[in-house]
Design a binder for these strands. Structure first.
Lengths: 189, 189
DNA sequence: GTGAAATGATACATAAGTGTTGCAGTTAGC
DNA sequence: GCTAACTGCAACACTTATGTATCATTTCAC
């Protein structure tokens, strides 16, 4: 699963360059060829195949990478111990940062046919756990459906990453959570 | 742009079968081949190419079809004259019906590289006009950003179409609009 | 410095999809 | 019923991407 043997420094550099180039190119055109990725990475196509045996292997590596970052990011948000609103804001801002930097990898890791599907399911479960805590703390309506809540939360994250005016992760996180909790209706209901 | 000459009945039947088969097949796998689409439609691959010169032409036809349905659906919702909440609910339910029946076509018509991009922009404008009316009527907060509001609305429509428990367009529309306006927080804020 | 690892360049084999054409048989329209 | 349109089937040419292999050259690790 992991590297059978450690890579040399130049090979490691190639791996990084390819992963980052793939993100750039595939975000623009998900059907882009290995050739285009290689060119963007500044390496020969053969080298891409040396580091990633198949196209699928490259895509999997991107998804794995981003899911790992997501995992540590959630850990650091202390979703089980910190006040729900604090954890929510920290995690939301972190996810937005990731989404802004790795939009393609983030999107492809959500694909249920991806080998990271169980990783995403685990993350979704942790997300729903946090939502449950938020509900218990009175942050969400007692009647709120946790699955729907998480769906809406994911959707808002996706839209916020596409926002045209604002690009600061913290400001966007505030917008996302405010919208999630209060909607867009008037304050005096 | 439109048909230079009227199609015979059997040809018209083929067109319909191909469009519906394409929706079924492409929703499952967006990279599915013309061969798979032809098989699902119960026609020969050559026939698909006779009705739609290129793959792109088929995709365009699907997008055009769904955008036209979207247009009439919005017209029938009377977004300029009916009470905003009524129009919103009617249109929302209609869009959800379309999304449930033509998920792939609806998604692909949103693609900005699609030739229907201007059609979608026009629809987005009408949507924002309706949002503006809703805001003027006090349905939305006076500070609500109309672009963000529309983005959130679109996202909620997308998620509602993927909802697992509920599949009735009207119930889903209620859920979408309630979430849009009030969020998921507790009632007493 | 020496050897192993990595790279670029090039060529090759393979596979798959796309779009076209010709022809024989059928189907719809008048 | 006659004609033109349509279809299935098969073959074809063309394009494109993928993955592999070879070899000379460069770069890293020790």
């Amino acid at each position: 699963m992991t590297r059978p043997r450690p890579l040399r420094a130049d090979a490691e550099r190639s791996v990084r360059a390819i992963l980052e180039a793939a993100e750039q190119v595939l975000a623009r055109d998900p059907a882009a060829s290995m050739e285009q990725i290689a060119e963007a990475a500044g390496v020969a196509r053969a080298t891409v195949h040396r580091r990633f045996a198949t196209r699928q292997a490259l895509l999997d590596a991107m998804a794995t990478d981003v899911v790992r970052q997501l995992d540590t990011l959630i850990d650091e948000g202390r979703p089980e111990t910190a006040p729900p609103m604090v954890a929510l804001h920290r995690i939301t801002a972190g996810v937005l940062r990731l989404k802004l930097a790795w939009p393609f990898a983030m999107a492809s890791s959500m694909d249920p046919t991806s080998p990271m599907a169980d990783g995403q399911r685990r993350i979704a479960d942790r997300c729903e756990d946090l939502m449950r805590r938020a509900r218990d703390h009175g942050l969400l309506a007692p009647t709120a459906d946790l699955t729907w809540t998480r769906q809406v939360y994911y959707a808002l994250l996706g839209e916020a990453a596409h926002a045209t005016t604002e690009h600061d992760p913290d400001a966007l996180a505030t917008l996302v959570l405010d919208t999630l909790l209060h909607g867009l209706g008037p304050k005096s209901e």
